[in-house]
């Protein structure tokens, strides 16, 4: 983080994690996939905590289980054993319907390929998660406009995804992820599909969300440059956490 041209340049200091409560507890998590008759172990005995406001980068070789771990924390995949407690809720004990409700209010998703809905405008894409809340139309409008202001795309809100560049689409996706003010933000390779300049813009935005808004972010990345924006870096190797690297 001493690189003079990191994504976090010119931004405030990172959150002082020492005084922050633990918000994500991962305990003894195991996960395997079945391929035909083969059991493919993906994660073994994963244990770690994430503190509120932490910006965590998960790194590791391809196939090491980074995405799988992220999906488990985000509540879109099921553990084989172990528990994941987020904000006091053991999400491994929730049924599918409850889990969907939980995701709607607690998780903001940022995907590698943005995953915006092509038939909806930027505004409507950002509004989509708010359809799941009890907010009125005008309240939703307010929230959406604010989120789009954060990513600096207010002037493009009536544009469709196909009318936006990759970097702009990812910024809309980030607005969609933060609009519900979720407990955690999860990002799987958020810069994986972007050129260097756009990637830096996105990382700078994520850094700002972390430092200025105190968001808890869990990001999977291959890109060491991207990881520099994070405060904590954890390495996965063949399904185990390997924190030998600082």
């Amino acid at each position: 983080m001493t690189d003079p041209v990191t994504a976090c340049d010119g931004q405030g200091p990172p959150v002082d994690l020492e005084n922050q409560p633990v918000i994500v507890e991962v305990r003894n998590v195991n996960k395997a996939y079945l391929r035909g008759n083969h059991v493919i172990p993906v994660l073994q005995e994963i244990n770690f905590d994430i503190r509120a406001g932490e910006f965590l980068a998960l790194m590791g070789p391809s196939g090491s289980g980074k995405s799988t771990l992220l999906n488990l924390i985000a509540g879109i995949d099921k553990v084989d054993s172990g528990t994941i407690v987020i904000g006091g809720v053991d999400i491994t004990a929730l049924d599918e319907t409850e889990l969907a409700h939980w995701r709607a209010t607690n998780v903001g998703f940022i995907f590698q390929f943005y995953n915006l809905i092509p038939v909806l405008t930027a505004f409507e894409n950002v509004e989509l998660p708010l359809q799941l809340t009890g907010l009125s139309r005008s309240e939703r409008r307010e929230h959406v406009e604010m989120a789009l202001r954060v990513v600096n795309l207010s002037h493009r809100m009536d544009h469709y995804p196909s009318q936006l560049s990759g970097g702009e689409q990812q910024r809309v996706a980030i607005a969609r992820a933060v609009v519900t003010d979720p407990t955690i933000l999860v990002a799987d390779e958020p810069t994986g599909d972007l050129d260097r300049v756009s990637a830096k813009e996105i990382m700078s935005l994520m850094c700002r969300l972390s430092r200025e808004s105190g968001k808890t972010i869990i990001m999977v990345t291959h890109d060491p440059k991207a990881a520099e924006a994070a405060q904590v870096i954890r390495h996965l190797d063949k399904g185990s956490l390997n924190d030998a690297h600082p």
């Binding site: 319907t97 969907a100 409700h101 995701r103 209010t105 998703f109 995953n115 799941l132």
Partner: peptide, 14 residues
């Protein structure tokens, strides 16, 4: 398909 996955991830029910 990816769109369906996205909607579900965002919290829309089956």
């Amino acid at each position: 398909t990816a769109e369906i996955g996205t909607l579900r991830a965002l919290g829309f029910q089956r």
